[in-house]
Nucleic acid binder design. Structure first.
Lengths: 351, 351
DNA sequence: CCCAGAAATCGAAACGTTTCGAATCGAGAG
DNA sequence: CTCTCGATTCGAAACGTTTCGATTTCTGGG
């Protein structure tokens, strides 16, 4: 009455009266199989309700799981809140799917918990780290111990594939643009330094400690442009809400900034909202820049001056890096080109 | 010089001078192992750089991959654009992670392509469908053929676990609320009917054809409330942009609606933007309702009348359903309770 | 001093494929 | 009529674990 046990290739072979290897050859497509033999095997499989070769057995035998791990920093809820990240992942997952690779979502290993983490225990062929701390990244140790090949997005590590962007240079271009417009007091709102936190004025040495690479690069851009920000505000997360909070901190700061460089469009959008709440006009009273080139319909008719990134292209590049890893090639280092785009959120500094 | 081959348990056993099974017992934690034996094995493993038991072999032997497939309708980029979905997935993935299960992202199998889809070829222990068409859902066939246990969110199928919401009743409550406020011409903006499309006035029979369950339920609410919508607009996707387009269609429609029932907050937000563009005040000139209870900071001080859903709770319930499936229990049917929340986006109909 | 029984360790049989070399079968060449 | 050569099909050995029953080693009671 009940299906005792899933049928296996051996069952199919027995019913068809052929050898196990013949059935395997039929399914794998390797080796020559005569048409009538193929028909016989397929008939037997259908009669038995055989669901095809066991993927677990294939994985063991072939040494490949057809799974790529995707390590997401912090909570999904915040990490994927960003439409830009979604575009990247969309392209990445699509490409990997075409390569026959599934994408396994891995919550970031929290430093405190020593309990076995999925990153250490999930079966996969390669991993992609969406972000990395520039010192002491715990995930790297785990991957190294398992000697899994991996790719890092916006970051580098010895032996890893890297997909980077020239965000330092692009941000410096943004700053130079503001300087040319006569701005002298420029505030900046950063991405979180290490993990989700609280939006606050940042007091410490600018580039001290372990930072996430993008945060560091975009801060370093001020050095490159030869400008010292009049106030640095660290956001708790790249979200509109935090941008609003950051905006209030910036405009309430005694240094009276006339421009705000934000490390993401979402933050910039929040800063615009804060400005409006305070009765400041953008760009007449304050200039605001973003990063990523998001489409924010609720900001219209304002069009942010920003650094657009092609999310789909980035996703494709990551997939390309992963492919190299899977093929056993030398881990590539790939850069996505970037240029700033002047919108109408920046203008000549008010006298 | 080079590591020829990853060491296996057999290598560790040989070096430690013990049997293979003893090493296995040491790692799996089953069976009694004396402290000095454990030390000896661990020493040998360390000397060899043994990275722990092969997960592929474990999967074959135990029959479990520790992977749950997550089938996402349409493109990730659009499906995850919704912060509510993100909250659900965040909780779900966290819970599954604690259960030692990874989450494999599966692009929806497109009907046209017959090429092997990941849903059919990825190794997993169970699957979660985030949405389902109420007839002819191709994904169901694939899963049935593989006889994988699976859970459906906002939908049902024989033999599947189901996590549902009383969205028909809740939407009907919303409609009754509008009727009490004196509204007689109520428009509605639906989620896409089957897949991403174009925002347009819907002309056909209201509940004809295969619809996604939530779309159907929330349309059926009009029947339940005894109201006929004066115009039905089908959105191309649950996004603000599409809501703006839908709003223009609604307010430009000859039926002159005084209220718009939107099947998501994102759509409602877009309709609000459209109203503002047309110089209509919310709620004085038009009342607008949403669904989900999103936090939309850019809408302030407007506070949508909507049906809040607790995303985290929903995620936890799904995880609970998956757990039952993995334990081999009877597939449960679970409902998340829902109540409407009156905000300030609805008011008495203008005379 | 012998023996039952607990504690620790070991052997061998799965788990379900893929793959490589060997075996079989006709058919056309000599 | 026999030999050789493709075209197929078959056997057996992995892949790296877990697990069950058997074996060995002690410990303490009688």
């Amino acid at each position: 009455m009940s299906a005792q046990r899933r049928p296996t290739m051996a069952d199919v072979a027995a019913l068809a009266g052929v050898s196990l290897s013949t059935v395997s050859l039929t399914y794998s497509g390797a080796g020559p199989i005569s048409p009538d033999m193929r028909a016989r095997v397929e008939k037997a499989a259908a009669d038995l309700g055989y669901a095809g070769p066991s993927l677990r057995a294939q994985a063991l035998r072939s040494g490949r799981s057809r799974v790529v791990g995707l390590v997401i920093p912090e909570r999904l809820q915040f990490a994927l809140r960003d439409p830009f990240t979604l575009r990247v992942l969309d392209a990445l997952i699509g490409d990997l799917g075409e390569m026959g690779q599934g994408v396994l979502l891995l919550p970031f290993p929290s430093a405190e918990s020593t309990e076995p983490n999925l990153l250490g225990t999930a079966s996969m062929d390669a991993a992609v780290l969406m972000r990395v701390r520039d010192h002491d990244e715990p995930a790297l140790d785990i991957l190294a111990r398992r000697d899994l090949p991996f790719a890092i997005v916006e970051g580098t590590a010895p032996g890893a594939a890297a997909i980077t962007i020239p965000d330092r240079r692009a941000t410096a271009d943004l700053i130079r643009h503001l300087v040319e417009l006569g701005h002298e007091r420029i505030a900046t709102v950063t991405l979180p330094r290490q993990t989700r936190g609280v939006t606050q004025v940042y007091e410490g040495e600018l580039l001290a400690g372990a930072l996430w690479t993008p945060t560091r690069n975009r801060l370093a851009a001020f050095d490159e442009a030869g400008v010292t920000p009049c106030v640095v505000i660290e956001s708790g997360a790249s979200m509109v809400e935090e941008g609003v909070a950051a905006g209030h901190l910036a405009f309430g700061h005694p240094s009276k900034p006339t421009a705000v460089v934000c490390q993401s469009d979402l933050l910039a959008g929040g800063v615009v909202l804060a400005a409006r709440e305070l009765g400041l006009n953008v760009p007449e009273d304050v200039s605001i820049t973003g990063f990523d080139g998001l489409d924010l319909p609720w900001l219209q008719p304002l069009d942010l001056t920003t650094v657009p990134q092609d999310g789909a292209a980035k996703g494709h590049l990551i997939a390309q890096g992963v492919k190299a890893l899977l093929d056993g090639d030398e881990p590539p280092v790939i850069e996505l080109p970037l240029e700033i785009r002047i919108g109408n959120s920046t203008a000549r500094a008010a006298r």
